[in-house]
Design a protein around this nucleic acid. Sequence first.
DNA 1: CGTGAGTTTGACGCTGTTCAATACTTGTGG
DNA 2: CCACAAGTATTGAACAGCGTCAAACTCACG
Lengths: 231, 231
Amino acid sequence: MSMSKQLAAGVLGGLAHFSWPIAEARRPFDRHGAPPRAGPVSFVAQNRGIYDEGDEADTFFEIVAGVVRTCRFSSDGRRQIDAFYVAKEFFGFEPGAEHRLSAEAVSNCTLISYRRRGSEKSASHDQAQSSLLLPYVMRNMVRAQEHALLLRCRSAVEKVGMFLMEWAAHSPNAQVIVLEMTRRDIGDYLGITIETVSRSLAQLERAAVIELSSAREIRIRDPVALRELNA
Amino acid sequence: MSMSKQLAAGVLGGLAHFSWPIAEARRPFDRHGAPPRAGPVSFVAQNRGIYDEGDEADTFFEIVAGVVRTCRFSSDGRRQIDAFYVAKEFFGFEPGAEHRLSAEAVSNCTLISYRRRGSEKSASHDQAQSSLLLPYVMRNMVRAQEHALLLRCRSAVEKVGMFLMEWAAHSPNAQVIVLEMTRRDIGDYLGITIETVSRSLAQLERAAVIELSSAREIRIRDPVALRELNA
DNA sequence: CGTGAGTTTGACGCTGTTCAATACTTGTGG
DNA sequence: CCACAAGTATTGAACAGCGTCAAACTCACG
């Protein structure tokens, strides 16, 4: 898109990036393919971390390809997923000096990194960057608000239904959804267990609303019924 | 604050405002006091609407005094509260042409209104406004994200505990919280019923964590125990 | 063909919702 | 000043849905 070119021209800063296997000792960058290109493009393999909660937030990212999740871990070890990001979306731009969430690659990812201008004390320092970023920050704000509303649907089936609607919108073919993420990812995003995710999908299949071609590929048979769940 | 002066100088637009009793036929402005002042300051009485979901979003607001809730109504009549806003905070600035949520006065409110510059197609039209607003939009983004995380706490008591922590931070005296909102407001914010809110508070009182001087006034007896609920 | 991660399904218990009754608070009018 | 009404809050009992634990199944990969 032209927007990414604008940002690349206006904001870019080449940075070396590192990623690590999740829930293991951190170790250096491990790509899937060629050696790292000089410049702001980086590759991150499936399930590897991009940054951690508490890391310095001097860099933010645009996704070229793949899916990223931002998440937080509570002290009892449970994981909460804040959002999934797909191609052409931005993540990691935050108000403070540190990342408030961790970011991890759901699938193999290609990212463009941008260096953030100005600290939180002089956020208006670079007006050009601010005004370019505002629409993206607002989109993330709306996303978080809609997510919070989603989480208050009463039933698990409604939550799963709304999740499917969200991903149908991202999908090239609105009839067939290919899920990049595991049941655990879905559960941690919706605030329910993997068993309940599975049962909800089974229930929707029994009601002939969807059809599970495989565990990760879902065909929508009755879009109207699916939409009515949300109401 | 100096920020509000900056915005008033940079962005202001005088607008006549209207509010209405909630869940009744809309009727014109009904203040609590003197006639409406010319200019961007308006008064809204408790429980009256400020704008509705779907209204044109050409205006946004700063709170001088009082508490505002933004909310949405699902088709089954249930209300979901997205956020509470207090003095010095902004609300109603949105990416699209229409408000995505309704806004209502929890208590009697004094507001400053600002006219939004530029449509969504030319959001970067007014760079000065964009860069001034960015920090506020980001704060609202963070707020929504934290809210989404809050909603996934397992137990109702944890949710209520986190809610109390939030409001203790706003309170002048950190030991005593005066709730401006009803149990229904709290329940709709936390995604639980008023009965469960009440039971959770009773449970915290039995555990000697808090003390309910009256229904709306809560004294925190054991801040450490309260904080540990969240972990 | 075996292994391990991911997924599905079943049985049971707990937590929050629902429905219902009671108490408290505030404002209004006699 | 008291009585009454309406809104708000608390408490109880029964039920339903989701979480938990456990076992079986599927699939990709070596």
